[in-house]
């Protein structure tokens, strides 16, 4: 298994009039092998989507990114290189399928524009699109191609989105909350479809979600992000059954279900910090029951068993 994506110490600053106003990413380390799925889990404002945007090289001009992104056989790639890889070797699926398609073009027209980047003959594109739509379970592909986005359901649109993502046979698929806007049963079908397609085509996947159980279902490896940093990562089964970082533990304890006693979910006090400009030491310290003086310096990522954890209170 070869590494498709490796991100080391990715940091992002937001500037206004030349000064840094926020540092929403402060140390993202991830690595995905071909055919593998890495799940990034975290709460709103922790930097999940920003990580994806930054890997795609699509940050707004007011942002500055640092760190090393290595991609497949290209080695280290710059933001400019990313522009070439987008839509050819990297594809992305977005959260809300209803707004991800342009409302005034047919699905066919939009898929066509993406397919044209592959520089193949027109009638071959038609064949390719039909085949792609069939492969995502849309059996009346011809009708779908001729439909406008508002004529299709959210589930169907998300399937179209997946078909669009796979037109280019990418090496890496980034899925940013692909099921959040869908009903549970439809979302489940979409997840199963993505997984099946992944096994069929062997692409690597970066799966981003706030939903721990979705990440647990889909990913081989997971990374928990908090306040712009990876605080724990490792094989999914391992992290889920043996969480180390207090934040990971809290997150897993907060998932409601029938088996947990009512009214006794683990509730992490406080909120995710809104600005990360002046954070000193561990950013979780002010919500953490274990925090003490040791936590005033930023803890490094340390290997503990199969996982990597950034917490001064966790020892191997």
């Amino acid at each position: 298994m070869s590494t498709v994506l490796k991100v080391s110490n990715l940091e992002v600053d937001f500037l206004a009039q030349g000064t840094v106003v926020n540092t929403p990413l402060r140390g993202i380390y991830i690595e995905i092998a071909s055919g593998q799925t890495l799940g990034i889990v975290g709460e709103t404002g922790c930097g999940k989507t920003l990580t994806a945007t930054s890997i795609m090289g699509l940050l707004p001009s007011s942002a500055v990114q640092r760190g090393i992104i290595e991609f497949a056989e290209h080695g280290q790639v710059s933001v400019a290189d990313m522009a070439e890889l987008r839509g050819s070797e990297i594809s992305m699926i977005f959260q809300n399928p209803q707004s991800a398609f342009n409302p005034i073009f047919t699905i066919g027209a939009q898929l066509h524009m993406v397919a044209q980047r592959r520089k193949i003959a027109r009638d071959e594109i038609d064949q390719l699109l039909l085949a792609r739509l069939h492969s995502v379970g849309l059996n009346d592909a011809t009708r779908v191609l001729n439909s406008y986005p508002h004529e299709l359901s959210g589930g169907m649109l998300q399937r179209c989105m997946i078909a669009m993502a796979l037109i280019a046979t990418p090496k890496l698929l980034i899925a940013d909350e692909p099921t959040t806007a869908l009903d549970a049963t439809i979302g489940h079908q979409v997840l199963a479809l993505i997984r099946t397609l992944q096994q069929r085509e062997g692409f690597a996947m970066l799966f981003i979600s706030h939903d721990v159980s979705a990440v647990a279902k889909v990913s081989d490896v997971m990374a928990v992000v908090y306040a712009g940093r990876v605080v724990e990562s490792g094989p999914t089964a391992h992290v889920m059954s043996n969480p180390q970082h207090p934040y990971t533990k809290g997150l897993l304890g907060a998932i409601p279900n029938a088996k947990k006693p009512r009214g006794q979910l683990v509730a992490i006090a406080g909120n995710v910090p809104s600005s990360l400009k002046d954070v000193v030491g561990c950013s979780f310290a002010d919500r953490c029951a274990l925090a003490d003086a040791q936590c005033s310096t930023e803890p490094p990522l340390v290997h503990i068993g199969e996982a990597v954890v950034a917490c001064a209170k966790v020892r191997a």
């Binding site: 070439e84 987008r86 839509g87 992305m92 977005f94 707004s99 342009n102 409302p103 524009m113 993406v114």
Partner: peptide, 17 residues
């Protein structure tokens, strides 16, 4: 600033297009 423009960028369509 719409999502579908972000999507178009993510799929590598040229800024001109």
């Amino acid at each position: 600033s719409q999502d579908y423009v972000k999507v178009a960028r993510a799929y590598g369509l040229s800024e001109r297009l």
